[in-house]
Amino acid sequence: MKNITQHIVLAFIIASLFGAVPAAAQEQPDGKDVFDKWCAPCHGAGPGRPGTGALQALYKGTKPALLEERTDLVPQITKNFVRNGVSVMPFFRKTEISDAELDALAAYLAP
C-alpha cells in the first residue's frame, strides 16, 4: 500500500496544503498525506521525533522504531492509538483526523 500511494503524494500535498481541498480529495484521503501531516512530526525519521525515540526506547531494536517500517500494524491498532492516545501522545478528534482519513492512514500503515 505504501508504494502504491507514494507517487501521488506530492500532487496531493500541493493540492491540499492550504485553503480548500478539492472535493474529490476530501472523498478519497491519502494515507501518506495524513501520516505526513499528523504523524511525521513525532513519528518521522531522524532525531527530534519524540514518538520515534519512544518506540526505539521501548523496543530496543526488536521492532522498527519507525511506524512506516512496521509490518505488524493491522488497521485496528493504528485506529486504537489515534483515537485513544498513549502516554504523552494525545488522542485526535474527528475534526483533526476524520474517520475517512483514519481509514486511509490505517491502510497506509497496514502490512
Binding site: R49, P50, A54, A57, L58, S87, V88
Partner: peptide
C-alpha cells in the same frame, strides 16, 4: 516542531 514533546515521553533516560 514537536521536539519538545520529549518531555515526559519514553526515552533511554526516562523508561
Amino acid at each position: 516542531s514537536l521536539t519538545m514533546f520529549s518531555i515526559g515521553a519514553r526515552t533511554e533516560n526516562n523508561p
